[in-house]
Amino acid sequence: MKIINVDNPDLGCTAYFGIDVPFMRHIGLLPERLEPGLARTRLPLQQELLNSRGDVHGGTLMSALDFTLSAAARSHDPLATGVITVEMSTHFLGAARTDLVFEASTIRRGSRIVFCEGEARDAQGNAVCVARATFKLVHVGSHPATGEPSGNPQTQTTLP
């Protein structure tokens, strides 16, 4: 079983399991572990991520879950596969007021579509948010019209 950690030299300078995600860097999400079918990230509590009640904003939770779920979806080949979120359903179970850990797993992966589920837990281990999502698999680095290598590693196209 191949496990990818943040300091894995195979990932080069891209810290988010092989890709650069400026928004995740902006909110301070920390990738921790990636292995086939599983992803784990951590979000330190920050004042800028709180709502008017002092809880972690729901949009922050959803963004971190979307990334963590998508990492699990592409975990079978994270350097060559990207994903596009097709659908995501989120349920808020309680207020988030501490550092958070996000864990996601693949429920089923087909040749083009992946189904995942995940959760956010607070420092006491309480689930504060759960989500399920569907992702479309895409090749990284192919030209959308021709399928030929584009020279741009951020370009993605749908898998055949």
Rank of each mutant, 00 (worst) to 15 (best):
R40N: 01
G125C: 06
R40S: 08
P36N: 12
S70Q: 06
R108S: 14
T106S: 00
E117W: 05
L38V: 04
N51E: 06
G118N: 01
V86E: 04
P9F: 10
R74D: 00
H76E: 10
L137G: 06
T60K: 07
D66M: 01
H139C: 12
G125W: 11
R132F: 11
A64W: 06
L79M: 14
P160R: 05
L30T: 13
T158G: 12
P22Y: 09
L45I: 01
E117K: 09
A145H: 14
E87S: 08
G141M: 14
E32Q: 13
R108M: 13
V83Y: 04
V101N: 00
A64M: 07
L93G: 03
G151T: 07
V138R: 14
I19P: 05
Q47V: 08
T68M: 04
F23R: 10
E103F: 09
Q46E: 10
P22A: 02
M88H: 04
A96Y: 02
L50M: 14
P149M: 09
M62W: 02
T60F: 05
F135L: 09
T106Y: 01
T60E: 08
L38E: 09
V140Y: 08
L30D: 09
M88D: 01
P149D: 10
F92M: 05
S63A: 15
G12V: 10
S89Q: 05
I27D: 01
N126K: 15
F23K: 05
M24D: 07
R109W: 07
I3F: 05
T106N: 06
A15S: 15
R40I: 11
P160A: 12
R53W: 13
L61W: 03
P153W: 00
E48L: 13
S70N: 02
G94D: 11
L137A: 09
P78T: 02
L29T: 00
L29N: 02
G118Q: 05
L79Q: 05
V83D: 01
K2I: 11
T85E: 05
R121K: 13
T90E: 09
I107V: 14
Q124N: 15
G118D: 05
